[in-house]
């Protein structure tokens, strides 16, 4: 049995929030650099250079790379043989978010209710997705999800007869509708199959994959390559000023589904693809 204290979780989550918002993961930086080298539009290249400069500046000075430091979406993989001491996992995570957003001078962007719009003042509550896994490890990933790209995400319950062509059309259309609002170059998380909520969740989880990997199975990998090509043919380009690079990567996750269903979720992620993780082993 592995034991982790609530205080330790809080301290780590606070650190992850700050790190996610100030340091762009190396795979994202690498993808942005190769995008800058490949981009044919002069204005597009200029935009990519500035975004890279922005990421460098944020990391060097430990300041947020973007003013929308997001809703904290926290993924927890908890081993069956892990026990949290002196507190509750949820409270420990929420406290970590509260501390991290305060100490890191991060923006508090959460309102109590969608209708009353009153700010909670400390960026809590986070969204927590917990998965129980075998073993003695505890892994926590914090993703700072800004609204610009999140707001342009879509889910559709398609009919099986609509087929792959309709799926592709829906994904491409989602990126087109978003345009510069989603801060391209984007990362596109696609969930295909599952139930209504599972489809959205796997689309979001797809965004956590390293940008240079390819799909979990050949069918997904093929779809990823074709979708990336289709999206990069739209001409939207970096920040919508025109060019070849509209998306850095497309990540497809699939799940078994009902004989009558074909859910498709497209979760858009801006170039500020911020996440940070820690594993207790």
């Amino acid at each position: 049995m592995k034991e982790v204290s609530a205080a330790e979780i809080t301290a780590k989550v606070a650190e992850l929030c700050i790190r996610a918002c100030t340091v762009l993961p190396p795979d994202v930086v690498a993808a942005m650099e190769s995008a800058r080298d490949l981009e044919e539009s002069a204005l597009g290249r200029e935009v990519l250079s500035r975004l890279l400069e922005n990421a460098r500046l944020a990391a060097d000075e430990s300041i947020p790379m973007c003013q929308d430091t997001g809703l904290a979406v926290v993924f927890v993989e908890m081993g069956e043989d892990v026990r949290v001491n002196d507190g509750h996992l949820r409270d420990a995570i929420a406290e970590g978010v509260r501390e991290g957003y305060e100490r890191g001078y991060l923006r508090k962007s959460v309102v109590h209710s969608p209708l009353n719009r009153c700010n909670t003042g400390d960026n809590t509550p986070p969204v927590i997705c917990t998965e129980i896994v075998p073993g003695e490890t505890l892994k926590i990933t914090v993703a700072a999800k800004g609204a610009g790209s999140e707001n342009m995400s879509r889910l559709k319950m398609m009919a099986p007869a609509d087929g792959e062509a309709a799926v592709k059309q829906f994904v491409r259309e989602t990126v087109e509708r978003a345009g510069a609002s989603a801060c391209p170059p984007v990362v596109v998380g696609v969930g295909l199959g599952g139930s209504f909520e599972q489809c959205a969740l796997i689309a979001k989880k797809a965004l956590l994959r390293p940008l240079h990997d390819s799909g979990p199975h050949p069918e997904a990998a093929k779809l990823e390559a074709e979708l990336l090509d289709a999206i990069n043919s739209t001409g939207i380009g970096p920040m919508g000023v025109g060019g070849r690079i509209t998306a850095l990567a497309v990540k497809v996750e699939t799940a078994p589904c009902h004989i009558a269903s074909m859910p498709v979720a497209v979760n858009l992620q801006c170039h500020a693809a911020r996440h940070a993780e820690h594993t207790w082993e």
């Binding site: 922005n54 973007c66 610009g148 920040m239």
Partner: peptide, 10 residues
């Protein structure tokens, strides 16, 4: 149109 996501630089 400004540089979306370049808050530190701007």
């Amino acid at each position: 149109g400004g540089l979306g996501g370049a808050g530190a630089l701007l």
